[in-house]
Design a protein around this nucleic acid. Structure first.
Length: 478
RNA sequence: GGCCCGUUCGUCUAGUGGCCUAGGAUGCAGCCCUCUCAAGGCUGAGAUCAGCGGUUCGAAUCCGCUACGGGCUACCA
């Protein structure tokens, strides 16, 4: 069993492609199959520098690996189509020799004019087979000097069909097809020729790709037939859609995998979410690791309709996976998201207290900044609880400072009762007292639990910040 | 225009003729817990299963038509 992923190096790997690749991966891994990464770069105009590296980065980051590919090598190397041109040219020639394909010398101008005429007459736009009847010997002679493409001779009638693993039976009438180009004038194959030749030569046993390819299946079937090969089973997975219902693309915002990494998403969460976009276990379970997926994913449960990208749901899965991390692991994942100069020992102490408050790893920085800098500017009026005033708040803070100064050791377990009884003494609610102190030490209204925050901040800094808050209040309004 | 695919709560989905007065999740609202925010627990609103016709004792589930959405229709993939 051999499966392939065949991205084009037209940029960073796209989230929709990852979903398709994931399904290929799961299918192969659960059956002990071999996975192949093949780069389909037959369009020289659309190449983007560094794209292959970013495909490697993106796929490795989400935890997808493969057996044969451009860097891995393998029995069918090279795995980059632009390095296999001779193979396609030989195969195109074979079809010419068999009489299954022909040289076409029509210029792009003639083709454009033809199309314009057909459109004007409201006819179907397709190639008119102008060069199909040039005697083979004459055509071969002209081909030595004139620019040309090679086209497939499409039959006038007949039915082409597949039993798609997702959609079931699909069929087409051959007479709705045109004589497609197999080899372009620059000597490069079209996608259609290259994919059929490579899938056959590389021994691909299952073709699984996005739904946008179903329309070209009959073309491929005809090419298989022309070579006398058998087409392998196919599955066409539904598209990942943007909020407007159209296939997800760059214009819907960030769709590159690397963007999700940079935005603080866990690969576990992305994979979990993506797996469920188009597939369902049929049970009410929904939290799955890659290993779980390899066990439970079934192609029979793949949805036939496209699914819209839902960021809220991704965020939910990200939270779930963040909470599943051990503290050490969380600290490790947080590493790229906090400044290098922040003390990792402090980070580790606060990590368990922000863990359940993180939607993404990126959120951590703002929540714990107060531990690493004294620059926590805030407006003094924010210290004052509703129903209270400047003087009373200043007094409460003074008392807090005094009480906290007595706490030894300065741990949350001892801070708690101290502040609780102070609140009672002052006839303040804990919420109001803690809110004022929280503002004083963090400069924010919300944050990790107060007692733990004080402990991690340390006695000295905590007292100093409370003093500063008092001064702010006594000094009058900003 | 032609060919093909699709259509269950806003969103992701369960559902393969009776278990469906349609289940779960997310999001939303409320309550509980609570030092804030989260997390967690509970409750609620939210889908005439695109519409119509047919098959059947019985249809979200099978068939047909229509509508709507999407993909393809290149010497792009």
């Amino acid at each position: 069993m051999r499966l392939r992923f065949a991205p084009s190096p037209t940029g960073a790997i796209h989230i929709g492609s990852v979903r398709t690749i994931l399904y290929n991966y799961l299918f192969a891994r659960q059956r002990g199959g071999v996975l192949i990464l093949r780069i389909e770069d037959t369009d020289q105009d659309r190449l983007v520098a560094g794209a292959i590296d970013s495909i490697y980065d993106g796929l490795h980051w989400v935890g997808i690996s493969w057996n044969e590919g451009p860097h891995e090598g393998g029995p069918h190397a090279p795995y980059v189509q632009s390095e296999r041109l001779a193979l396609y040219q030989e195969h195109a020639q074979e079809l010419i020799d068999k009489g299954a394909a022909y040289y076409c010398f029509c210029s792009k101008e003639r083709l454009a004019a033809l199309r314009a005429e057909q459109e004007a007459r409201h006819e179907i736009t397709r190639y008119d087979r102008h060069c199909r009847n040039i005697p083979p010997a004459e055509a071969a002679e002209r081909a030595k000097a004139e620019p040309h493409v090679i086209r497939l001779k499409v039959p006038d009638e007949g039915v082409l069909s597949i039993e798609d693993l997702v959609h079931g039976h699909i069929e087409w009438q051959a007479n709705t097809l045109e004589d497609q180009v197999l080899l372009k004038s620059d000597g490069f194959p079209t996608y259609h020729l290259a994919v059929v030749v490579d899938d056959h030569v590389m021994g691909i046993t299952h073709i699984m790709r996005g739904e946008e390819w179903v329309a070209s299946v009959p073309k491929h079937l005809l090419i298989y037939r022309a070579f006398g090969w058998e087409a392998p089973p196919m599955a066409h997975f539904p598209s990942v859609l943007g909020p407007d219902g159209k296939r997800l693309s760059k214009r819907h915002g960030s769709t590159a995998v690397s963007q999700f990494r940079d935005d603080g998403y866990l690969p576990e969460a992305l994979i979990n979410y993506l797996a469920l976009l188009g597939w369902s276990p049929g049970t009410e379970d929904e939290i799955f690791s890659m290993d779980d997926l390899i066990r439970v994913w079934k192609i029979e449960q793949v949805q036939s309709a496209g699914g819209k990208w839902d960021k809220d749901r991704l965020d939910y899965f990200n939270g779930v996976w963040i909470r599943k991390l051990s503290v050490d692991e969380l600290v490790r994942r947080l590493e790229p998201f906090v400044p290098a100069e922040w003390d990792r020992a402090v980070l580790k102490k606060i990590a368990p207290h922000i863990q359940e408050r993180l939607k993404t790893l990126k959120d951590a920085k703002d929540q714990i900044r107060f531990l690493f800098t004294d620059d926590i500017g805030y407006e003094s009026k924010l210290l004052i609880p509703k129903k209270s005033d400047q003087i009373t708040t200043a007094e409460a803070l003074a008392h807090s400072r005094a009480v906290l100064a007595e706490v030894e050791p300065f741990t949350s377990a001892l801070i708690r009762p101290a502040l609780e009884s102070l609140a009672e003494q002052l006839s303040w609610s804990r919420g109001d007292l803690n809110g004022a102190i929280r503002m004083a030490i963090t400069g924010r209204k919300v944050g990790p639990p107060l007692y733990e925050s004080l402990e991690v901040l340390g006695k000295e800094k905590s007292l100093k910040r409370i003093e500063k808050a008092q001064e702010l209040l006594v000094g009058g309004p900003d």
